[in-house]
Design a binder for these strands. Structure first.
Lengths: 158, 158
DNA sequence: GTTTATGCAAACTGTTTGCATTGCT
DNA sequence: AGCAATGCAAACAGTTTGCATAAAC
């Protein structure tokens, strides 16, 4: 909503990983820290522009790649052909949540209902899978797909 | 593995939805019915070629779209930039399963461990979300990401 | 002063679309 | 016969890459 002025935690973390803090990266992190929703690379590019007009879309992609590989940002695919990015909850004060995606209009609902049970089961499953398949599990994804109230009434025009 | 000769259940279903049964579609359905793993559109194109060389990649995409929208086939994104397709378990005799994806090499493990618990929770969550957010939920997705035994030992060369 | 990050333009990749032709039903 | 499905080529969209320049450290 409003762009934050507090120095994002991300800054220090990135630096800790040995990356340089540039104006562009800082502006991108500010946008991510202040965003309510799940932004595409182009959304971010546009939101960064006012604060730092010299930004290029390429840098947005490159910065996002760094942030994702360091685990500071999550990357999602909601099936509409463009990736979405979301700051990880630990760097935002937000709660862990999953997504409910409307296949009709693309609307995304963040939900945290049943999240404790989900997480407990995920943790347990993770441990079992880790052991059985000899994986080091880093992350998980849960999404529900369906039609929101607006889309479920209108005829399937697809 | 081996191409099946039994008439796939898909055939009748597709026809039931009002679609025509063409040689290309039949060949595609045979490949899907006989495949062990998760195929990309191009994988399918290549596998269909021997049986029906006139097939075009476009038709593969168009047929897959039909199969996905009718719910006969599931479409997945494992993060490598290409979509994967898998026949729905009810048309294959397989059990419901979820996926464990290696971020290093792209290997995908189908797992069914804890699946009953997962499904029970999913069902419950689905009911809750449906009501609270007024969605008609059609589908869900659960995936775990990590590094397989081969990839977790080698240095992060990325 | 070195080295990493940037911007631009061009390349790339998976997927989609227009259109004339073919082939189910 | 009538209409849905096809193949080809071209268009498309998001993302990535090469390279010379600029900015962190």
């Amino acid at each position: 909503m409003k762009s934050r002025q507090e120095p994002p935690l991300l800054r220090g973390k990135l630096k800790g990983y040995g990356y340089r803090i540039t104006q562009g990266r800082e502006a991108i992190m500010n946008v991510l820290a202040g965003a309510e929703d799940h932004l595409s690379a182009e959304d971010i590019y546009i939101k960064v522009h006012p604060a730092y007009p010299a930004i290029g879309l390429t840098s947005v992609y490159r910065t996002l790649e760094v942030l994702v590989t360091t685990g500071l940002v999550y990357k999602f695919d909601f099936g509409d052909g463009r990736a979405r990015y979301e700051i990880s909850e630990s760097h935002r004060g937000g709660a862990h949540h999953h997504h409910l995606v409307c296949t009709g209009c693309g609307r995304i609902v963040d939900y945290a209902d049943f999240i404790d049970e989900e997480l407990a089961l995920l943790k347990k499953t993770e441990a079992g899978l880790s052991k059985k398949y000899n994986f080091r599990i880093i992350n998980h994804l849960i999404q529900f797909y369906g039609f929101c109230n607006k889309c479920k009434t209108k005829k399937n025009e697809k």
